[in-house]
């Protein structure tokens, strides 16, 4: 990619422009806020639905195969098609975007949480049973804590891909930073606007990923210092 670093190299339409960022800080911040808010809500809702599903799949083997098959098929369906299916019913707006990104995030979290739960060593499970833990006690005190790394991997993957996916929401006019990128493309290919939206998008994904990684480190102190 050709990047003009000096203003003179690309008069009128540079890739980066502080002038643009300063003049449009309100619009940019509003887009960033909408994007972050959509992502946060989506991952939270997805996690709240996905964890019980993963536990159900873990407890009942027969459910496990069908849940994995269903998520596999859903994952193959392109995001634009999902928007197309939902928009006529949910209307043009944030609800549609939220539903679509929640569905995709759900799949990622269920798969990773289930993998994490399945990695709990059988000896540990049997030992817990021998100590008199019931099904629920074992789940909350033994299995879920041991599955935390898998769950956190799922949350991180889901967050990063959700940040990227929200931009597709421009199709219903609620794409957060995608709105900025798309508007830049339509307004005479305004490079500075496109680039600002893109950079903020990638940065947002990076920051949220780092935050979740930090939370993960705090939640799993026993993994610290262990050679990976």
């Amino acid at each position: 990619m050709l990047l003009h670093l000096s203003y003179r190299a690309a008069p009128g339409n540079p890739w980066f422009s502080w002038q643009y960022v300063r003049d449009n800080s309100d619009t940019i911040l509003a887009a960033l806020r909408e994007h972050t808010w959509l992502t946060a809500r989506a991952v939270l809702i997805a996690a709240l639905v996905a964890l019980p599903l993963a536990v159900a799949a873990y407890w009942f083997r027969s459910l496990s195969a069908s849940i994995l098959a269903l998520t596999g098929v859903l994952y193959t369906i392109p995001s634009l098609a999902l928007f197309a299916f939902l928009a006529p019913y949910l209307g043009i707006g944030a609800v549609t975007v939220l539903t679509v990104v929640v569905l995709y995030a759900l799949l990622v979290i269920v798969r990773n949480a289930l993998a994490g739960l399945n990695q709990v060593p059988p000896e540990v499970r049997e030992a817990a049973e021998g100590m008199g833990y019931g099904r629920w006690g074992r789940l909350f005190r033994i299995e879920l804590p041991l599955a935390l790394p898998g769950i956190l991997t799922g949350l991180r993957l889901a967050t990063v891909s959700t940040v990227a996916l929200v931009t597709v929401g421009v199709v219903v006019g609620r794409g957060g930073l995608g709105q900025l990128i798309f508007a830049g493309f339509q307004n005479n290919f305004y490079k500075a606007q496109i680039m600002t939206g893109t950079v903020l998008c990638v940065l947002l994904a990076l920051v949220l990923d780092l935050v979740l990684a930090g939370v993960g480190r705090l939640l799993t102190p026993w993994l610290r210092g262990r050679v990976r």
Binding site: A164, T167, V168, A205
Partner: peptide, 20 residues
């Protein structure tokens, strides 16, 4: 794979036509 996961498709689709 991690970096491409974070790049929105929309961004690449709009940026690349403006390059060479």
């Amino acid at each position: 794979s991690n970096v491409t996961l974070a790049i929105p498709t929309l961004a690449l689709l709009t940026i690349l036509p403006l390059t060479f």
